[in-house]
Simulated scan of single mutants.
Amino acid sequence: MTALRIRLFAGIAGAAALVAGVGQAAADTWKYAFEEAMTDVQGVFAQKFKEEIEANSDHQIQLFPFGTLGESADIMEQAQAGILQFVDQSPGFTGALIPEAQVFFVPYLLPAESEKLGDFFRNSKAINEMFPALYAEQGLELLTMFPEGEVVMTTKEKVTTPADLDEVKFRVMTNPLLVESYQAFGATPTPLPWGEVFGALQTNIIQGQENPLFWVESTKMYEVTDYITFTGHNNFTTAVMANKAFFDGLAEEEQQLIRDAIDVSFEHILEYQEGLSERSLEKIKEARPDINVVVLTEEQRQPFKEAAAEVEAKFIEMTGESGKAILEQMKKDLQAATQ
């Protein structure tokens, strides 16, 4: 973050704090930024949250989809500075700030199917009791986490084994554990901000990337890659946070207003995602009839699962006892939720 940006953020944050101090009881406009378009999963969640807040209070929610305030790193900086009251960001990016959040990128830890994850995200002790303190250390109030869909690989060449990823430059989020994951899978991980990915694939600077199917369809990744591969290695997770100083400064009834709106939006987004991957794949096939869709068999997935053990060990090495405790608790929570 440049000195100029720091001064700019500080000035805006100071002005925002001055306005807020005039009287919290007055109706406010709260700013909420996220990493996707209005029609994508995070955007649908944000619109439901806005609807609930505005229906049950005099407050207004101003939404900022991807690109309107910069990249993921920019909106996180603005949320921490108090310019934004709410931010939705994947642990894939937050992992550099909160290393333990990278647990969501340990391959084959989460079930790929979103319908198996609702109870886990609702009731997980790791999410609801352990993570909030880690986010609070970074000036953030963790409001919820939710799944966005099974992660698929999109590549220029067919992938059925880790050997097929040899020398493939594979885009990953700026997340140390994702780098470790794709090294273990045999690829050359290449961290890139999202805004550069389409062009990098188009010019062959990179040859692959991973994301949920709705995002592959929405961003037209199928135009610059030829294979969609279901490896079953993850389900994309995201987190909604508030600036902690803002949240702590609210009256108790306003904090409850926010929590209630989050709960309604959570249930709404799970319902919205039912069949979303299938619908997205149909749209991709319609737009690109020659796209190759590969679903790895359990036998083909086994080498990737064996590589995942190495990544899990790296996660513990990166995060120490804190990360190990969260990983162990998540495994217990997942077992309880998916049996």
Rank of each mutant, 00 (worst) to 15 (best):
V293R: 00
Q273R: 09
E217T: 09
K324W: 01
M221R: 03
F266I: 07
A287E: 06
K305H: 12
Q302W: 11
D248S: 14
P303E: 00
I258C: 04
I326C: 04
G275P: 05
R259S: 11
Q302L: 15
I316M: 11
E278R: 05
I291H: 04
K220C: 00
T225G: 01
F266V: 05
K283C: 09
L270R: 10
K331A: 09
E274Q: 15
I258A: 07
R301L: 07
Y272N: 14
T297F: 06
E282D: 12
M241E: 10
G320R: 09
D263K: 14
F246A: 04
V264E: 15
E254Y: 12
G249L: 09
Y272W: 15
I258Q: 02
E306D: 15
D260V: 08
I258G: 05
V311P: 00
L281R: 04
A242Y: 05
K305I: 10
L270C: 13
L276F: 01
E299I: 08
K285A: 06
H233Y: 10
S322N: 15
E223V: 00
T319C: 01
T297S: 12
Y227Q: 00
E217N: 11
I262C: 04
E310I: 15
K324P: 06
R279A: 15
E282N: 05
E252L: 14
A313T: 15
K305C: 07
V311K: 01
D290P: 00
T237W: 12
E278A: 03
Q273G: 06
Y227E: 01
A239D: 08
K324I: 07
E306K: 15
K324L: 09
E310M: 13
K305T: 06
H233I: 06
T231L: 15
I316R: 12
D263Q: 14
F236S: 06
E254G: 09
Q300V: 00
K305G: 07
N234F: 02
H268R: 14
E317I: 08
F304S: 08
T225M: 00
A239N: 12
Q300F: 09
M330H: 13
D248I: 13
